[in-house]
Design a binder for these strands. Structure first.
Lengths: 153, 153
DNA sequence: GTTATGCTTGATAATGATAATCACTTATGG
DNA sequence: CCATAAGTGATTATCATTATCAAGCATAAC
């Protein structure tokens, strides 16, 4: 079910909530917190609306991003990923695990001091995007397990 | 002139410093601090080596990036940009002006506290990339000038 | 109810950046 | 000098995204 705030944003832009757009939005809401690429959305949309076209998915994602319903980012080479905008938590960062490629969100916003510093130098900071490349706890644990001599053999 | 550290890195990888590779490296060094795309490098390289092919430019940039001589990033949609790695200042961030699209480097590394926080949670942070979207002082000044009523008319 | 207007759609072609292929050249080590 | 491998330029292939276009539906006007 598409939320009220999405409805409002669509209406303000005089856009219709068609079944295709609803399907895409449902998919994004069902995958809250994940970062989907256009073809991943398309694949999932096909199971709900078999006749949907890839162009519609691209158009819908683009439109939702311009309405600030979705957030558009690029994590890997030349490929956009979209996630549902979180109404309250504007500024969040991402940890990209170098081993399993999972993307974890960080809610901490510890950049205020840096931004304040730069504002004093004459910049007006509008937004920021921080990507941390790391190994996540799971992968570190797995690596430790692998390197442990196998007792059973 | 290609620096010594580049030479060393190439030799360690058993790679030859051909005239094409030297040209690309010279271009990157002449544009220290700027962020060039493959076609910008290609265009400039053509003026020095008219016969150089675009494929060689791509291959060279890719190779230099894997040797950590160049740093590969994506600022705008689906297009890589390369800059010379600064030997001392590993971690620097970028301010991308939303008005003039200029890219300014920030040397301050105020992310240590955030990283320490995350390390305590079990992550091993390898690298980070911070992009700040802002209006630079120049553009803010220009905007102020524009909005000032024109006295002469 | 019918017609006109315009947004939306699906299929497909076009684009643009990058990667892969291939035949040819050049360097290097025995 | 020859053998092997690395490097090159031209070209093609690939892949994500965008543009085009005819057709499908709404809603508003008549």
């Amino acid at each position: 079910m598409v939320g009220r705030f999405v409805h409002d944003k669509l209406e303000k832009g005089r856009y219709k909530l068609t079944s295709q757009r609803a399907a895409v939005l449902d998919i994004m809401m069902d995958n809250r917190g994940r970062h989907l690429s256009a073809d991943e959305v398309f694949f999932e949309a096909k199971t709900r609306l078999p006749n949907i076209g890839i162009a519609t998915v691209y158009r819908t994602l683009e439109k939702m991003a311009s309405l600030e319903i979705l957030h558009k980012t690029v994590f890997d080479q030349g490929k956009y990923r979209y996630e549902l905008c979180d109404e309250n938590a504007h500024h969040h960062h991402h940890i990209i695990c170098l081993s399993c490629n999972s993307i974890i969100e960080v809610q901490d916003d510890l950049l205020n001091s840096l931004e304040k510093h730069l504002e004093e130098q004459g910049y007006r900071i509008i937004d920021h995007e921080l990507k941390l490349y790391a190994y996540c706890p799971d992968c570190l644990q797995k690596r430790r397990d692998d390197s442990t001599p196998d007792v059973s053999s």
